[in-house]
Design a protein around this nucleic acid. Structure first.
Lengths: 149, 149
DNA sequence: TCCAAGTAGTCAACTTACTTGTCGAAAAGA
DNA sequence: TCTTTTCGACAAGTAAGTTGACTACTTGGA
């Protein structure tokens, strides 16, 4: 179980290490209490400024109730606010606060730094190979995203 | 959020795709009902034939109660059996059944095949680079394994 | 050899992050 | 207009973990 198919184990471990490191880091820069699930919510909200909770749920692949709970939690933590929807009086849009944007910036900065460190140990050219190979793998694969971190 | 630090997103997505594909495949070869968490239990049990539930829990990073529940479930599904511990009358060892070993074999075979397919699209030499780079990443990282799939 | 401390596993209650189901209010399509 | 759909709220249930307390057995030291 360690030669053939080793990449699967490595992939799982690398993923885990990355997520753990990120959250450990975030906790030290004023963003404790975030769970992996929040990451993709942030990513979606950052490029869909008028998204509703239901929309967000659809993107994350969870029910609207779960999405509502997530938004409740992010609201309580100060990362998003709910505002009246411009055209639909049933709906409310979910908007990132300044604190939300700050967190996103810090995630991006941390990943960029982690990537630089990795490039230092294995070489930038090799890291490019990794990136391309991963792109090929996920492009090839069937179906829905929903990375669930 | 897509150039610098893109590898983080790719890693998360690739992991997700891999796990989903694996479980979809397992369901088609007579091993439906398995959850990601079972994978590492199998891996550990395959190389620690006299492991107890508590030991397994320590390896997986969960409480003994959670480990016991996991073993209950695997027993019910026919993947493991509990047997008297050879020297400790408090303890019971958890042993893989034939069905358990069959599942492990199928996982290994599937990963090997997935790796071959991947190598076909990106080239075997590039896949070696990926493997080495991932090894370097997880080796570099601090601390506990516990991939939690 | 006995006793205190430690450990394997069980039972019970609670927490978290979801799920399904139902509903009122508003929107949208025929 | 009228029917159907959709947004979000409320309620209850489930799955997979947690902490805490307990019994049965083991172990190591006085």
């Amino acid at each position: 179980m360690s030669d053939r198919g080793e990449i699967a184990v490595l992939l799982a471990t690398a993923y885990r290490v990355m997520v753990d490191d990120l959250h450990r880091h975030l906790a030290t820069v004023g963003h404790a209490g975030l769970r992996p699930a929040h990451g993709f919510a942030f990513q979606y909200l950052s490029r869909h400024p008028t998204a509703t909770a239901v929309e967000l749920g659809a993107h994350l692949g969870v029910t609207k109730q779960a999405a509502t709970q997530l938004v409740d939690e992010l609201t309580r933590l100060g990362y998003v606010t709910r505002e009246a929807h411009p055209t639909d009086r049933r709906a409310r849009t979910v908007r990132l606060t300044e604190r939300g944007w700050d967190c996103i910036e810090k995630v991006v900065a941390y990943w960029a730094q982690a990537e630089r460190r990795w490039a230092e140990t294995v070489g930038a050219d090799r890291l490019t190979v990794v990136r391309d190979a991963l792109r090929a793998y996920v492009a090839d694969a069937p179906g829905g995203l929903r990375p669930t971190w």
